[in-house]
């Protein structure tokens, strides 16, 4: 077309570049840490970064978890030994908490966050 100018083409190229670059955004979605809970043959998944509470029913009653500040713990449980509650907060992929009497298993899955330099990891010992 005779009337297209240089500026037109420049603006077009800018838009095109941004569009192509947007494909790289796909990487920000995958790899986020998730809390996987298994109980009685069913599975639940929660985003570790979203604060939420959930309750699961098992043979001895209810076990409740709380996700807050990118950590998760067993908030309360109807089991006698309360081992799961005493386990405290977990936050790293690979860490887990289990309530055996109530058949509830909590595991954090995802890509490990890159450790800062000098930070000592549990697994180093």
């Amino acid at each position: 077309m005779k009337q297209l100018t240089l500026i037109d083409i420049i603006i077009f190229t800018i838009f095109l570049t941004i569009s192509i670059l947007s494909f790289t955004l796909y990487t920000t979605i995958s790899g986020k840490p998730e809390v996987h809970v298994t109980s009685g043959g069913k599975e639940w998944v929660y985003d570790l970064s979203v604060d939420t509470q959930a309750s699961f029913e098992g043979p001895v009653g209810f076990t409740s978890i709380e996700i807050s500040n990118n950590r998760v713990h067993v908030h309360e449980s109807d089991c006698k030994n309360q081992v799961c509650v005493l386990a405290g907060w977990i936050s790293k992929p690979g860490e887990w908490i289990a309530c055996l009497p109530n058949n509830v298993f909590i595991l954090i899955q995802g890509e490990p966050v890159i450790a800062k330099e000098g930070e000592v990891d549990d697994t180093s010992f």
Binding site: I29, E34, K42, E43, W44, V45, Y46, D47, V50, T52, A54
Partner: peptide, 18 residues
């Protein structure tokens, strides 16, 4: 569903639909 929350209904590949 891209922010998983709750009971997993089924999975597409490794991705859970909750």
């Amino acid at each position: 569903t891209l922010s998983p929350n709750g009971l997993v209904l089924f999975s597409i590949g490794s991705f859970p639909i909750t």
